[in-house]
Amino acid sequence: MYAPEFDYYRAGSVSEAAGLLRKHPGAKLLAGGQSLIPLLKLRLAAPAAVIDIGRIRDLKGITVKDGTIRIGAMTTHAELAASAELAETCPVLAQAAAGIGDPAVRNRGTIGGNVAHADPASDLPTVLVALEARLMAEGPDGKRTLDAGGFFQGLMTTALKEHEILTAIEIPAHPKGQSSAYAKFAHPASRYAVIGVAAVITASGGKCSSARVAVGGMVPRPVRASSVERALTGQELSAESIAKAAAQVTENLGNEVLGDIFASEQYRRSVASVWVKRALTQAVGRAK
């Protein structure tokens, strides 16, 4: 468990980090280190340089303004989990962050590092897809905004270009009538999501006016469960209609369902709808 040799740089600002990235081909950004450090120690990654962006002040913190939640990329999972503002305006994110790894991981790991790493078994990508979050990136060609829906492209692959740095995430705060929840079937060893489901429900007059459901863990990138969303929209939010809609999830999983020694592809397909149902039920239960 000894990392190979690398040069370490600590960036004081995003532009400094961007400059270092250009100067050191193949360099890796170090955020909270919860994914990169193990990869280094296992010698599965051997970058010549590691650029630490974990102490850039501008990249930290949660602000809610004009119905938009802005989260700096270096905000830790523990900060997300403990945020009273998030609990109020976007409970699904706080809830998912609280279930990541263990306290040590949550105290170090950051939302930006997590999302940019794009591990399919990670919780936050699924949540951001359901929330239709916008991801802010800064690179050699300036700043741009990416939609969460198109950001996650596959196993450990994102739409970030070379030398681009994820700086912040913006999420619309829940308007009146909207509620959300995350249901997770956690791996007993790693705590990663074997199946993770994020649900964002808008209700009006007891009926579902809009539903956004994303499923992660069991597929190479989080997918929207559009069949579930369609089946639920316009329906009464009853246990029966939720279960019926949840059962549609298999339509959206395609041929890429993952399997491993703990949970086979077939098993994951068999129980996916249960976890969708649980996320939906909890979200509906949270509606005010």
Partner: peptide, 16 residues
């Protein structure tokens, strides 16, 4: 050995 690390070999945890 497929359960060769703490990622795959599940030791008991207090919260379970």
């Amino acid at each position: 050995l497929l359960t060769g690390s703490m990622l795959d070999y599940a030791l008991p945890r207090a919260d379970r």
